[in-house]
Design a protein around this nucleic acid. Structure first.
Lengths: 130, 130
DNA sequence: CAGTATCCTGAAAGATACTG
DNA sequence: CAGTATCTTTCAGGATACTG
């Protein structure tokens, strides 16, 4: 969490933006709500995030306690990410963002794979790839 | 509006972030919902936005049709900004952002001046300064 | 009051290559 | 598969000064 001393103000909007206010963070969250769990799945999203950027975001969100890493002791190929309770609390904010975009930006549409779904995030177990 | 050709994807979340995904834009929107209308009022907000940044954001939001400039023909001191219908449609997104910050970031609190209020934005008439 | 005009710097991000 | 390591570039944003 960002220490109070270096926050721009105590405003909850400003503080939320210090965490989520960029072009990538919420997209990673979106992917988790869509049921994605693996590095290469995030990377394969159509927006085309760079590996260095993705790596930084995953570490950032982990440090904030919004996601957690479900590593595997011996097999690095089974590393996965999942939303924590706190991460799941972003559901309505994310949904609201999607709704606004859908209603106000012509040409937008929900991705193949379905709408942002809290159920996908909660019920999908992080699975190692076959 | 950002042309489809240069969007990262058709995802409504991604497109919304291309518009709102930075640390300043939503704060200007917030100030409008708080009933502020004038350049120096935005500037005086505790986050301390630079004049060049503020100027760019006001032009940007105006070009998107989210705010409108209610200029005065002869007196530049009476220039004011107000939310358009489309800008007002950001109310629930903004409120959701504030709610999430308030519930998940310790030490945040609504600014003196009251909670983000759609009524302040709608009912307050842009008034020239005395 | 409502900006514009510069100058400048750091941080963010893209591209690419490499690794256990 | 899940990253790390560089390198380079861009550009958002801060500081400051000035103006009708």
């Amino acid at each position: 969490m960002i220490p109070k001393s270096q926050r721009r103000s105590p405003c909850p909007v400003a503080c939320a933006l210090d965490i989520l206010g960029d072009k990538w963070t919420l997209l990673v969250i979106r992917d988790l709500f869509l049921g994605k769990h693996h590095f290469d799945e995030f990377r394969a999203s159509p927006e085309g995030i760079a590996t260095s950027t993705l790596s930084a975001r995953l570490a950032w969100l982990t440090s904030l306690g919004l996601i957690r890493r479900t590593g595997h002791a011996t097999d690095r190929r089974r590393i996965a990410y999942a939303l924590t309770e706190r991460g799941i609390s972003l559901n309505s904010l994310l949904t609201e963002t999607a709704r606004w975009g859908l209603e106000n930006i012509p040409g937008t549409k929900v991705m193949p794979g379905g709408a942002v779904s809290i159920r996908a995030a909660i019920k999908t177990q992080p699975q190692p790839k076959r």
